[in-house]
Design a protein around this nucleic acid. Structure first.
Lengths: 336, 336
DNA sequence: AACGTTTGCGGGAACGTTCCCAAAATCTGC
DNA sequence: GCAGATTTTGGGAACGTTCCCGCAAACGTT
């Protein structure tokens, strides 16, 4: 295990000053072509690798960005992460990932850890639109830029990457209506998530547009898990309310509900159609495959990464909100 | 956005040398208690945070470990990662995650990137038992310790964390036999993954043990994806061979096969029982829930993390192989 | 030929730490 | 009260870079 070769080694070897070596390596213009090439060749031969830590110390950065996701059980985050890394890695950035496990306290701890790690920027999908608000602000005031994706908070500072939850929900519910469904249940997401309200608004709008009366009993407030979906379905069946379709807040909820219904020998989609929002690969893993609003997850990651890069290199880069397009995927769970 | 406070600032403020400050902060014994406390208090008040980059440069480390996983579509990796971070974060290590996407070339690129990032160690679930062998060796020879988990390579150097694929497969197949199944199909994993052979051996052993003749036609070589599972099921049905159960290499394959069978109106588990290996949460998300060998994923992560810590702090720490216990989870896909 | 301008290079400080070495202060025992 | 041991502190080099500054050589211009 020999020592790595440094600029100084090159300097001695080529009888050039470290400044010149550095210039050659960083593509500085104040250097003759021939010397640059000589240096580059020697660097190649001796196997020189720049010491990132030293560079970072000198440049006052860490060359890393933190990503905080609520969970990684569903493939939602993994897709976004791929997009993020696709952009960030070639730029030499390390990506540090943390899971908040849907718990604001854990999120807080993770944010503090990110600070301690001195990340240059943070990309986050928040787990609660309210709780850590002031912390987000504090962090940004310390000069660490933040980009929010998917789950945001309405009046928050910082750049955002989202889809149009409202409109896409309208479309999704309209699809159910077009297939002849009238009694549409909505599995309403947790109120601490901003998207819940948006999707709910979309649901109501679609009903209104098609003159279907809105019945509050058909809206079930749920959590986020598979079990929450099952329980919601149980609750529905026990209530004896007639319903012919479900529009769920997420894939996970939809799958939970679907499985419970099938356990009760209810045919999907014949008796009850099921549609959801998210568009993770989970929706194609289940039987029947799930109709869902498919978000461009990789694209979301890429966009967030590009934004954070801009904000890192130019602190005065203005915050903006990018709305990506999501596609309605019609699958077997809603069509016979 | 004000400058962070450094040791020098403390030094000026307290009229003490930087050496003394450093000693106080690092819990050095060569310092008077009162001065240490004075320093600590001032540090607190002025909001001193050590500059990790500087420390790392000085200490010649990066305080980060790289983790390379084949994919993050299934929740397998995410669970292991949680375990890893649980151990590594409190120790101040950053965890850098990369996905090789089941492609040895991508894995290679990721490994090189990890080197460039100067990680102190690497935890990896390899995607091919052979292709990058020599690279693993090279990296370790450069002094970067490696720990392998789940997917390993028989004659590889380095520490390993695994489960007993062979024995657990025996048990799993015996369970099928005990529920009265005779014509047991095995969905054989790709040959470039070591575990495939192990699980296959277990399958054969169980048959032998119960005097069930082994028929090669019932073993289907597949890939790793959901679609591979579907195709295998299709192939089986088209071959017209009688079979009453399936033991699949992974959850994903099992789910793919199960969905195809159900599409063909085959009852599970009545007509065909399905069992698998892996034990991701996916197995409980599908209907019917999947019987599977549940690996202690978090524990796996924790163990790997502890091993890498040991190897980082003591380069001569001997390589070892830890075999964790996995549990057979009997669920609806195999029992009526 | 004398002048300014450009180009190419070297010297050395600086980034924020740690740690070796020496100096100073304090403590021992007689 | 003094030599010597011990504890506590300070000075400053070092980690591997980058980059400012200054200097020399080469280039143009009149």
């Amino acid at each position: 295990m020999k020592k790595p070769v440094t600029i100084k080694d090159l300097s001695k070897h080529l009888l050039l000053s470290t400044s010149t070596i550095s210039r050659a390596l960083t593509n500085d213009k104040n250097i003759r072509k021939e010397t640059r090439e000589k240096v580059l060749q020697a660097a190649q031969e001796l196997g020189y690798k720049p010491n990132l830590t030293a560079v970072n110390l000198k440049l006052g950065r860490s060359n890393s960005v933190g990503v905080i996701v609520p969970e990684m059980i569903t493939p939602f985050a993994s897709q976004v992460l791929e997009g993020i890394q696709e952009i960030l890695w070639p730029e030499g950035y390390r990506v540090i990932i943390a899971q908040s496990e849907e718990d604001p306290q854990t999120e807080k701890k993770n944010l503090q850890l990110m600070e301690q790690f001195q990340v240059d920027g943070i990309i986050i999908c928040v787990c609660d639109q309210a709780v850590n608000q002031s912390l987000y602000l504090q962090i940004q005031q310390k000069g660490i830029p933040m980009v929010f994706y998917d789950r945001i908070s309405k009046e928050m500072e910082g750049s955002q990457v989202i889809v149009d939850d409202y409109m896409k929900s309208v479309f999704m519910v309209e699809h159910l209506i077009q297939t002849g469904r009238k009694n549409i249940v909505h599995l309403h997401g947790p109120s601490y998530i901003n998207n819940s309200a948006e999707r709910f608004k979309g649901y109501k709008k679609a009903l209104e547009k098609h003159k279907i009366p809105y019945s509050p009993e058909l809206v079930i407030k749920t959590g986020l898990t598979f079990d929450d979906g099952m329980n919601a379905a149980r609750q529905l069946l026990e209530s004896n309310l007639p319903f012919d379709s479900i529009f769920a807040f997420t894939d996970t909820l939809a799958i939970g509900a679907m499985n419970y219904l099938r356990e009760q020998n209810i045919k999907i989609p014949e008796q009850v159609a099921v549609a959801s929002f998210s568009g993770t690969t989970l929706s194609t893993l289940v039987y029947p495959q799930l109709t869902t609003v498919e978000q461009p997850l990789k694209e979301m990651g890429r966009t967030a990464a590009e934004m954070i890069l801009n904000k890192i290199s130019d602190k005065s880069y203005e915050d903006k909100t990018v709305v990506l397009d999501a596609k309605i995927k019609i699958r077997a769970s809603t069509t016979v």
